[in-house]
């Protein structure tokens, strides 16, 4: 029994427990000591960055699941010309570094961007939102959608069409079918895709590095503390809090979603 436990224990030690302990200790070793952790809450600069980070991640997750869920179920159910081509290129955004995605958002919504030019041509102001919350959000959604869609397509293939027919035999309309049959069936997939999406949006650096000038997100703050201020302890404290909070949010989401085994059976 103990031998079966060993590989898992080694894995968790190497990837989670040891690095997190080290980060936690380094966080308390700076000029202000353990106060580095309380500063994160008291210093508005850090705290706002923390809120912004989780805000963007949450908005990204909800939007991605919504679009990904709809598109995924559609792609699984309907056969149309060009479908296989679409399925093949759908993973494309995942191959781009975050910087490229940031650049694409700038081309779309930056100062010289497409949306700005259109809004000018229509006689309005130059619309620029690449560098704020909305820009980051767009970039993250773009990056996370492919993985979410593919997960949903795979899960939708496992849905039993008879369940839907049974629901309809009782007079269930589309909304009932979605809520009573499709959503419960997709729940495990939605949770795992949402978790990955959320964690990715929390930690994404390349896109934030390119775009986040009007919005401060934690990965950027950590980078600044680390490279420009050489405040390694603060960077470590922020990293630890970022990691711990992400873990808590994901754990809460998982338990709130209840027994996923029952829904998948």
């Amino acid at each position: 029994m103990i031998y079966m436990f060993l590989p898992a224990a080694a894995f968790f030690s190497a990837f989670f427990i040891l690095p997190m302990c080290r980060l936690f200790l380094v966080g308390g070793s700076g000029a202000i000591g353990w106060r580095a952790y309380s500063v994160i809450v008291t210093d508005s600069n850090y705290f706002n960055a923390l809120l912004a980070t989780f805000g963007v991640a949450l908005a990204t997750t909800v939007t991605t699941l919504l679009i990904g869920g709809l598109v995924g179920v559609f792609l699984q159910r309907y056969r149309f010309p060009g479908r296989s081509f679409l399925m093949a290129i759908i993973t494309l955004p995942m191959a781009f570094p975050g910087v490229v995605i940031g650049f694409m958002v700038i081309m779309l919504a930056g100062r010289q961007g497409l949306i700005g030019q259109i809004s000018m041509a229509l006689g309005g102001d130059r619309l620029v939102f690449a560098y704020s919350f909305l820009g980051l959000f767009l970039g993250y959604v773009y990056f996370s959608l492919p993985r979410t869609i593919l997960t949903i397509v795979a899960a939708a293939e496992k849905l039993d069409p008879k369940l839907e027919e049974a629901a309809r035999s009782f007079g269930a309309n589309t909304w009932h079918v979605v809520w009573d049959v499709i959503m419960p069936g997709l729940k495990p997939a939605l949770i795992s895709a949402g978790a990955i999406c959320f964690a990715t949006a929390i930690g994404a650096f390349g896109t934030a590095f390119t775009l986040a000038t009007r919005i401060n997100v934690l990965p950027m703050v950590i980078y600044t503390e680390f490279t420009l201020s050489a405040n390694i302890a603060m960077a470590a404290a922020l990293s630890f809090v970022l990691g711990a909070l992400t873990w808590i949010v994901l754990a809460l989401a998982r338990s709130a979603a209840g027994n996923t085994v029952a829904a998948a059976a």
Binding site: A166, S169, N173
Partner: peptide, 29 residues
């Protein structure tokens, strides 16, 4: 469509809703 025909249907695979209890399944209609 089947929604409007007011018939009861029983499938080979049972097609019970896995996310509901027995009573909720029976009461679904």
């Amino acid at each position: 469509g089947i929604e409007a025909r007011k018939i009861g249907m029983v499938f080979q695979s049972y097609a019970l809703f896995p996310n509901m209890t027995v009573a909720q399944n029976v009461g679904y209609g």
